[in-house]
Nucleic acid binder design. Structure first.
Lengths: 205, 205
DNA sequence: TGTACATCAGTGAACGCGCGTTCACTGATGTAC
DNA sequence: TGTACATCAGTGAACGCGCGTTCACTGATGTAC
């Protein structure tokens, strides 16, 4: 049993070494641009070894995307008590995620390939986008209720406006123009966006 | 002279046939995914003929992008008289452009390739994004002035909010998840966005 | 008008290269007895 | 304890294939005289 366990541990470490290298290389250069030779070299194994752990190159990419998505899901961040700060935390987490070069690189890699990665695209939508959509609407609804806002029917519009400006400031420039935002300035940006957003959606009373 | 002219006309028509096929195929499948063989077949020529009109495959892509950008620039749409409608027209044109499958497909193709297409990405930024940024800020500044708004210092924030929600509703879903918006509903979407935006930025008086 | 030649858009077939994948093999680490 | 054998992670080298690009050539359309 101990032999088997030892071998399994070894195998897991090789496997995760491959995925770690793959995640970095795919994010940096894209799926097609990374050869199995380069990937194997970065992971410290031979190309043939890749095929002991994964059926083909595409499956490595799939595993990386899955890992990313499940990481994001599990990072339901620490939440503050009052609803005001909960929305702020959520917005900051969203902006931070969409400013992460690794995340954006992998998103770009998924966007790049069409045929093959449509399955990955679906996972990104339902498990990435879908979850944030729900979270934002939940927090906003709570916030509007707490302020007796008359706009409770337009929660989704409010959510789209907030997420839109965050995406416009982080994901889009990086994705389209390779402009990396200064992540130190994210909190200030988020505060400014939320402040402006509040003037529209939170009664001033 | 007439022979030369005739030949030039012929050549132009072949050239534009190639670019037309390329624009469609690259938008639909991406740059790497379209082989010169497929491209030549779609254009009705042989692969060798491609190389009479373009030095290499990448230059064909570059020519397509250039054509797209200059088309966009030249479509400074018809403008209404009153400043309210001018912003609406601009927003609608923006949303319409970012919902065009051909445009989004080419944007995706540019985003996909990194090394080679960074030059194309720059053109997209300065001549695509940059021009819209200026136009939006100009119209918004005029609008705020017309309403004696006290927010004249935050024109760029106002612009980012408006463009953000438009992008969130058109470009992003299509780019990331292949969700094609119903273009017939664009005017309603734009009106709703503008209406909500106005409540924040235009004094209600 | 007729004939030899020049020009040039266009092409089919071949070339070379890089890449994903597989194969036959190695060697370390165990077990059987 | 020693020896023959089993297991299995790991690999170098080769295979095949697709693709971008180029080459030698064709044939239509003109000009020179």
């Amino acid at each position: 049993v101990s032999l088997q366990a030892f071998r399994e541990t070894q195998a897991q470490s090789k496997r995760s070494a491959i995925m770690q290298a793959a995640s970095r290389l795919f994010a940096e250069h894209g799926f097609r641009e990374v050869s199995t030779a380069a990937l194997a070299a970065a992971a410290g194994v031979s190309t043939a070894t890749l095929y002991r752990y994964f059926p083909d190159k595409e499956s490595i990419f799939g595993a990386v995307i899955d890992e990313l998505v499940s990481d994001v899901i599990q990072t339901r961040a620490v939440r503050s008590e009052d609803s005001e700060n909960r929305l702020r935390d959520l917005a900051l987490r969203y902006a931070d995620l969409l400013s992460d070069p690794l995340v954006v690189g992998l998103i770009r890699a998924v966007v790049a390939d069409r045929g093959n990665s449509s399955a990955f695209g679906e996972r990104l939508e339902t498990q990435g986008n879908g979850i944030f959509e729900k979270e934002f609407e939940t927090e906003i609804r709570a916030l509007l209720k707490a302020h007796n806002s008359p706009e409770l029917d337009h929660v989704s519009q409010a959510s789209r406006e907030l997420r839109g400006v965050l995406e416009h400031n982080t994901l889009l420039p990086e994705l389209l123009f390779h402009v990396q935002p200064d992540r130190g300035e994210l909190p200030a940006m988020v505060d400014q966006a939320l402040d402006s957003w509040s003037r529209r959606w939170i009664p001033s009373s």
